[in-house]
Amino acid sequence: MSALVMFDHATLGYGRRVVLSDLTFEIPEGDFLGLVGPNGAGKTTILRAILGTLDPSAGTVTRRPELRFGYVPQRDQVDYNFPLRVLDVVLMGRYDRIGIGRRPKRDDRDRALAALDAVGIRELAMEPLTRLSGGQKQRTLIARALVGEPNLLVLDEPTTGMDLVSTTQILGLVRELHERRGLTVLMVSHALNEIANYVTRIALVQEGSFRIGAVDEIVNERTLSEVYGIPVEVDSFAGHRIVLARRGSAVMRPGERR
């Protein structure tokens, strides 16, 4: 199979609560996919099914047998109070390869340094994690994801809480990794505007509905107005797509649709 992950009529949820049903899509090798939707729409549920930490209640989710994930968690999932150096954190990405009860070797350290090099912060290897800026912390977590030599790089809300400069740099870095290394990338975000200009395909999840396609197929006024239930404009400025809710649509009450 050329797909790394394949959903076949999968129903996802927790216990008896169904979050999303009848999902059928795949993540082919070399894809650069953005999974977009508001908070609570089911992005994390889909992400867990992709990562294999949530089993579908119906249908199947199939992962290629040799598939390795490079996972970049949301920044608040990591505890920055731990007195760890940047290199220590990056080495964690090789822990499963090193094996239980064994210590990292020189080769592991060399690979960790190379991963730091790839994200442009090799000189920070011996710095305490707590002293880094938000962007540098995110680069550290990306380096940790890369050092395990993944087939699929998964980033969960990689730019949340970052300023414009850091956001642009991190998204640029991810695109560069995709283009330079041919790495398959899945980027989860609630910010359609941010990632629509970087990814090649978008999966849009909103109130139980799910659409997936090339960016042009999803990021257009008709589709977005249909999915969000409000009039949406898609403009272009200096080669960048900008998605806007039409004036007045923001005053709708929760749950109301036009």
Binding site: L51, G52, Y71, P73, Q77, V78, Y95, D96, G101, V154
Partner: peptide, 22 residues
Amino acid sequence: LLFYKEFLFISFDQETARTLGY
């Protein structure tokens, strides 16, 4: 001593540890 790195990993970032099969 034996499982230092395992205890460290699951304490520092359990979501990522889980994705690596822990």
